[in-house]
């Protein structure tokens, strides 16, 4: 047990002694902050009448009803930001292969499953930390902007805080998925390409395309991004339900279990694919 605690401490030291974590945190904050602030201003402006939708073209129809704006904006933290913990997790694993630091790591801790377990736990915690950063951007900036337009920020609402709590959990789980993916695909470049391609193009397209038919939508709710949105409870995609598309979604706890299953499958698979192989 003390060995495991030491291994976890060592994994934290690894992660915090390179620049990647704060670079990603900074970019995450800026990206989510801009998005949440900008869209909050747009939606809140339309709803409060400060912005005239007919003047700005088609923007008006898509605007969700007043009550759903704050959770939608707040959920950008995970619905848009989830790629960041995945990247950090994948970099943490693939970096060990790329820089051959598996050698000193396994010399110091020959029990490899313990090292992977420690890395998983570490990245979960750091993923939650990225969740805090993302929420500071989406809730912090989003609420500020909506407040300025006189829209109720719902910050006194218990449901908002449930959403915030689940967002943290979601971000932690995504970081574990990154660790597992990095072990499944130890090539750093390949791993990053897969993360970006899947999260930015493949999955959004699949979710959009599948939502036109009921049976494909049933399957698509098990996609990791969909499960993640279900766990959080609000997103751009669930928002589209109002636009007439059949966006079915899992219960939040089902979404959580599906996401956990992805994380476990990737990590355990990665252990056998690369982690427990010869280090040459």
């Amino acid at each position: 047990m003390t060995t495991f605690i030491r291994t976890v401490a060592s994994e934290f030291a690894k992660l915090l002694s390179t620049r990647m974590w704060w670079i990603l945190a900074l970019v995450l904050f800026g990206y989510i902050g801009l998005l949440a602030g900008g869209l909050a201003a747009l939606f809140a402006g339309i709803q409060s009448g400060a912005i005239d939708p007919s003047a700005g073209g088609a923007g008006g129809q898509g605007a969700p009803p007043l009550g759903s704006i704050p959770p939608l904006i707040y959920s950008f933290a995970s619905s848009v930001g989830y790629v960041f913990p995945v990247l950090l997790g994948a970099l943490a694993t693939t970096g060990e292969f790329r820089h051959q630091t598996l050698t000193p790591t396994f010399l110091a801790t020959p029990r490899r499953a313990g090292v992977l377990g420690a890395k998983t736990l570490t990245l979960f915690v750091v993923g939650v930390g990225l969740g805090v950063v993302a929420l500071l951007a989406s809730v912090g900036i989003g609420a500020l902007v909506m407040g300025a337009f006189g829209v109720d920020t719902l910050l006194g609402d218990g449901e908002t805080w449930t959403l915030i709590g689940r967002t943290l959990l979601t971000m932690g789980l995504w970081a574990i998925i990154g660790v597992g993916l990095g072990a499944l695909v130890p090539s750093q470049v390949a791993s990053i390409v897969i993360v970006l391609a899947f999260t930015q193009f493949v999955e959004p397209l699949l979710r959009l395309a599948s939502s036109f038919l009921d049976w494909t939508a049933q399957i698509a709710q098990f996609l990791p991004g969909a499960a993640s949105d279900a766990l959080v409870g609000a997103s751009i995609f669930t928002g589209m339900g109002q636009a007439g598309l059949s966006a079915v979604a899992l219960e939040w706890w089902q979404g959580g279990l599906v996401l956990l299953a992805y994380a476990a499958a990737a990590t355990i698979g990665g252990y056998f694919v690369s982690w427990n192989r010869d280090v040459t």
């Binding site: 060592s10 030291a13 390179t18 620049r19 820089h99 050698t103 110091a108 801790t109």
Partner: peptide, 24 residues
């Protein structure tokens, strides 16, 4: 071992520190 096994972005102190922590 022959291969250079370092993360280039880590300082020498931190590189060794990581493994000193792991080994207690």
């Amino acid at each position: 071992l022959e291969a250079a096994s370092f993360h280039p972005g880590r300082t020498a102190r931190n590189h060794l520190g990581v493994y000193a922590i792991a080994a207690g």
